[in-house]
Design a protein around this nucleic acid. Structure first.
Lengths: 357, 357
DNA sequence: AGCACACCTGAAATCGCTTTCATAACTTTT
DNA sequence: AAAAGTTATGAAAGCGATTTCAGGTGTGCT
């Protein structure tokens, strides 16, 4: 109708071909194909799905009509009748986040070729938005849900889990641990700290993530335990609070310096914090790694290109995403999700060095 | 059915309430609500949509039933009958890309509260995947399409544009320029180069983006024209080819050095290239900005936290995303898209300095 | 021949919701 | 008090596919 005119190229004219106006500009449906191929809609559907055999001659006619009319089945309609949308909802936190972006990319890869497509919605780390996003996904009839981090209440999540399969990454649903991809935060943090200790560092600062966040707490615990194992004291004055952003890393570094803390190494709760801290250090005229060694967590794609390249705990978000996707597909196929906890691995680059002297 | 068992919490039991098995675990439909509230499905629909008045008493009954049965309308079904899915397809290139991530975030923000939801699909900078993604979005009946960059053929795009509104960002559809958000690549690149010239630099290197990419060509042209305006020669030996990645920036810098080029400043075709170049410089013992000044393009979120903070041409992808989203909504409302080209702005930080001596 | 048995095919029901359409129950007008 | 509007409602007809059901044809077998 008229509405089309507004976004159509000016060149394209409305021409009356003598057909009825009704079926003129609307995309063709199975019925149109059926008519064009002189068969019933059922037959068209059969060649579409390949569910039951159809005479080669008619099949050819249908195929020809499909091509000629440029027909594409309406996936919504198909989803309605089949009761499966072939869509998987992904609750992420922010499209602009590198961390979640890499996870999302992994999921996309893991779903590729399966016939299922991801539908992303982001919660911006806010409970209300997360719930809205979750609800939207469920309302859109996704066949399964992958929840990436976040702080959504477990009650809501379990309620959804009772209706459709849910896989979580980086957070746990009590009672459904088999469907939760755990990250070895504690182990990773401990090995990062141990690495610094092995290099001779004794005064190792830590910039935490959001304290309310489980990941942040586990990483801090790993840091503290590594110190304890080495008979090193946990000094509160060496611990500054961050919130997983670059800015918080910069601020935390300022606050460490301001309070007169002396340290020769820093373990940051994630790479972004490390970026900020690294800038803070250089502002203070402190070189990395000559004066201060720096370790991050996550191993974002860009961390290898920081100057100096960042020593960090590799999470491999890409692989985690793929793994979550595969688990979801298995769940959908009625199999066991089979989610092994994601192993972390210390990647030693150039931001850490042996303590001088 | 059985399928549910595999992802249900063990605690949740299958209990026979005496109801028929059929409607037991399936989500309630309008008919269920109608029955529960002793009204017809039509009335339920009316309170759902608010399209026509319904007696307060019955409305209350319906609302109560909805709450009690925890009913949520099936958006697919609604989309089918209404002919509008309230979904907007976004063709992006990679979920892991910072650049596209920021655009995506902007789109999400711009769509918020409009009732429309974005559905993302990525093309991985490959024509075939882009086409597949595009097709999938159209098949899922999105009401409009926002195409972010990419190399999809204009023919395919125009074909789609004839069916549903299409807005593009960072690429042009000949004939539909009003629906294309142009980026001032040329102007930005020119002002970046001029900034370096103004600082006294005479030998300014350029690391290009993918030469086949329009953005890359425009930026290079801006660089060359700025040089020409200042009566500076365009020296091919100062131009190295990159592909918009950090790695290519590093490689390009190596190649510049290897060929014995002498330069005191670099204009990189985007920030990621600048990151890589910056690492390459430090590998060579060259300081930024004391020995070499460095300018990027885009102003990624993290560029302000590079060491030193990167001088760059700000694109404001967030705002571009919002702008594209708003234009799409306008198009959908039958109004003019009204897309002003995205202005770029030079952000001078600490990676550039006056030429010594 | 006669019967069973594939193999194909179209009519019709269905998915969950919205939207005419027709009608019943009231109000208002003159 | 009859004609003309309102207003609220349910029955029924789709939206665009799939799938069940019930044949119709053409073989193979006895």
């Amino acid at each position: 109708m008229m509405r089309r005119l507004c976004y159509n190229t000016p060149a394209r004219q409305e021409i009356d071909f003598g057909d009825t106006m009704a079926d003129m500009h609307k995309p063709p449906t199975v019925s149109d194909i059926a008519e064009a191929a002189s068969v019933s809609p059922s037959t068209v559907s059969r060649v579409l799905t390949g569910n039951s055999p159809v005479h080669p001659e008619k099949r050819a006619a249908v195929l020809a009509a499909i091509k000629q009319l440029n027909f594409r089945p309406n996936l919504n309609a198909r989803a309605l009748v089949r009761g499966k949308s072939m869509a998987i909802g992904i609750l992420t936190q922010s499209m602009a986040s590198q961390f979640y972006g890499e996870l999302a990319q992994g999921i996309e890869e893991g779903l590729a070729g399966s016939g299922y497509h991801p539908i992303f919605a982001s919660g911006q780390w806010r409970r209300d938005e997360e719930l809205a996003a979750l609800t939207m996904l469920v309302d859109r009839q996704v066949d399964a849900l992958i929840v990436l981090g976040g702080s959504q209440s477990n009650v809501d999540l379990s309620a959804i889990s009772a209706q459709i399969p849910v896989i979580t990454v980086g957070r746990t649903m009590p009672g459904d641990e088999r469907q939760c991809l755990r990250v070895q935060n504690y182990e990773g943090a401990r090995s990062a700290t141990r690495h610094l200790i092995d290099l001779g560092h004794r005064r190792i600062a830590h910039i935490t993530g959001i304290p309310a966040h489980n990941d942040a707490r586990e990483r801090r615990r790993g840091y503290e335990d590594a110190l304890a194992e080495a008979r090193l004291p946990v000094d509160e004055r060496l611990i500054a609070e961050g919130d997983f952003t670059e800015q918080s890393g910069l601020l935390a570094l300022e606050s460490l310096v301001a309070r007169g803390a002396s340290f020769s190494a820093i373990f940051a709760a994630n790479d972004q914090i490390a970026y900020g801290a690294r800038l803070g250090l250089s502002r203070r005229g402190l070189r990395v790694p000559e004066d201060v060694s720096l370790v991050g967590f996550d191993d974002l794609l860009t961390s290898a290109y920081m100057t100096p390249p960042l020593t960090t705990v590799r999470q491999n978000m890409l692989e985690q995403g793929r793994s979550a996707a595969r688990a979801t597909l298995r769940l959908l196929a009625g199999e066991e999700p089979d989610l092994a906890p994601a192993a972390t691995e210390l990647v030693v680059r150039e931001s850490t060095a042996r303590l001088r002297g």
